[in-house]
């Protein structure tokens, strides 16, 4: 544990000295916030409140990029080799990625809450503790996903290409950029298979609907299960040296991380409850009555 924290401090220090990291983890999310709130929501507090969970989800999902690239760079430059001689195991290195992502993302998230309240006058945040839980789960889960990509790829370039491909999928089909209600039904159904959707749904329900976490069991289970599986797999696939190759069977193993989301996607589609509830939340926006959806 102490080793993990020692590594975490070093990695946060390095991240804060990296301009690209600051740009992507601080400036980009804030730019998104202003874009959504001023342009799409036209500064109208209820509309801003409705889009805010999407902005938060984007910020939180940034951990997917976060420090996984740093780990690939460490391996590529022979830095991991040096750590291999010390009493540091793969688990500590991987955990330090997640932990530093968490500590570095929280201030941005907090800043977004403050801005949305101070600049756009959003005053109700529904179930704030529930939202905090989803923020935590989101950062951890998406950071763990990033670690799998880091384990599979050999160079930073490869990592970036693969990250981009997955990132676009998350971004556009999860409701993080365009709310799901605007999608055709088949796409809405498809999005139920994406981990990012569970994060967006969790944040929307807690923040807008003030829904208690116990009604969001499937989302919590999906994110926790995904994080645990992703961490275990990236541990199994961990490589110290740039020269070490990974086998095809190991790559196939990495695909196992989609299992919980596959199961949940099937289940959600069979039940078809979330989709309808999301539409209710959206419709309530236009009504004079409470913007809160009915609780289940």
């Amino acid at each position: 544990m102490r080793t993990t924290w020692t590594l975490t401090k070093m990695r946060m220090r390095l991240a804060l000295r990296n301009r690209a990291f600051l740009f992507f983890s601080l400036l980009m999310p804030l730019a998104f916030l202003f874009l959504y709130a001023s342009l799409f929501a036209k500064g109208e507090p209820r509309a801003v409140g409705y889009l805010f969970p999407s902005v938060l989800a984007l910020t939180v999902m940034g951990s997917f990029w976060g420090l996984s690239i740093q780990l690939v760079m460490f391996r590529e430059h022979g830095i991991l080799r040096r750590f291999r001689l010390t009493p540091v195991g793969p688990a500590a290195l991987l955990a330090s990625s997640i932990l530093s992502n968490y500590v570095l993302t929280l201030p941005t998230v907090a800043l977004e809450f403050v801005l949305v309240r101070a600049v756009y006058g959003v005053t109700t945040f529904g179930n704030l503790w529930g939202a905090w839980l989803f923020i935590t789960l989101g950062i951890v889960t998406f950071a763990a996903f990033g670690l799998i990509v880091a384990s599979l790829t050999n160079t930073m370039q490869e990592t970036q290409v693969l990250n981009n491909a997955i990132w676009f999928l998350f971004l556009f089909f999860s409701g993080a950029t365009l709310p799901l209600v605007f999608f055709p039904e088949w796409l809405q159904r498809l999005s139920m298979f994406l981990p990012a959707t569970h994060l967006v749904v969790g944040l929307q329900f807690t923040l807008i609907g003030a829904v208690p976490v116990r009604s969001l069991g499937p989302e919590v289970v999906a994110l926790v299960g995904g994080a645990a599986l992703a961490f275990a797999l990236s541990w199994k696939l961990f490589r110290w040296e740039p020269g070490e190759k990974i086998s095809r069977s190991a790559k196939a193993w990495a695909a196992a991380v989609i299992i919980p989301f596959l199961l949940l996607g099937v289940w959600e589609n069979a039940l078809d409850a979330r989709r309808i509830e999301l539409q209710k939340i959206y419709r309530s926006l236009g009504e004079r009555t409470s913007p809160l959806p009915e609780q289940r």
């Binding site: 020692t6 460490f74 040096r82 750590f83 010390t86 009493p87 540091v88």
Partner: peptide
Amino acid sequence: HTALPDKLRVGEAVELFANLY
């Protein structure tokens, strides 16, 4: 064939390794 992170200071590197041990 090894290196340390570019933006790690000398003092920090030595302290880091001491802590790891």
